[in-house]
Simulated assay, not measured.
Amino acid sequence: MKNKQAELIKRMSSNQLKQQVYLSQLLILVVGIVFSFIVFESITDWVKLFEINSSQWLYYGVIPGFIVVLVDLLLMTLLPKSYLDDGGINEKLFKNCSFVEIFVIALLVSISEEVLFRGVVQTSFGYIPASLLFALIHIRYLSKPILLCSIVVLSFYLGYMFEVTHNLFVTIIAHFIIDFTLALIIRFRSKGDSNVRG
Score class of each variant (00 low, 15 high):
Leu8Ala: 11
Arg11Glu: 12
Leu17Ser: 05
Tyr22Pro: 05
Leu23Asp: 00
Val31Cys: 13
Phe35Asn: 08
Phe37Arg: 11
Ile43Trp: 15
Trp46Pro: 08
Val47Asn: 11
Ile52Glu: 01
Asn53Phe: 11
Ser54Cys: 10
Ser55Thr: 15
Gln56Thr: 07
Trp57Leu: 15
Leu58Asp: 01
Tyr59His: 05
Gly65Glu: 04
Gly65Pro: 00
Ile67Tyr: 02
Val68Thr: 10
Asp72Val: 13
Asp72Tyr: 13
Leu74Tyr: 14
Leu84His: 03
Ile89Leu: 14
Ile89Tyr: 04
Asn90Cys: 04
Lys95Ala: 07
Cys97Gly: 03
Ser98Arg: 10
Phe103Lys: 05
Val104Gly: 04
Ile105Val: 14
Leu107Gly: 10
Leu107Asp: 14
Gly119Lys: 00
Gln122Pro: 00
Thr123Ala: 09
Ile128Trp: 10
Ser131Glu: 05
Ala135Phe: 06
Leu136Phe: 15
His138Asp: 04
His138Glu: 03
Arg140Cys: 04
Tyr141Ala: 04
Leu142Trp: 15
Leu142Gly: 09
Ile146Thr: 13
Leu148Glu: 02
Leu148Arg: 04
Ile151His: 02
Val153Met: 07
Tyr157Trp: 15
Leu168Met: 12
Val170Lys: 07
Thr171Val: 15
Ile172Trp: 00
Phe176Met: 03
Ile177Arg: 06
Asp179Tyr: 07
Asp179Glu: 11
Ser190Glu: 13
Asp193Ser: 10
Gly198Gln: 14
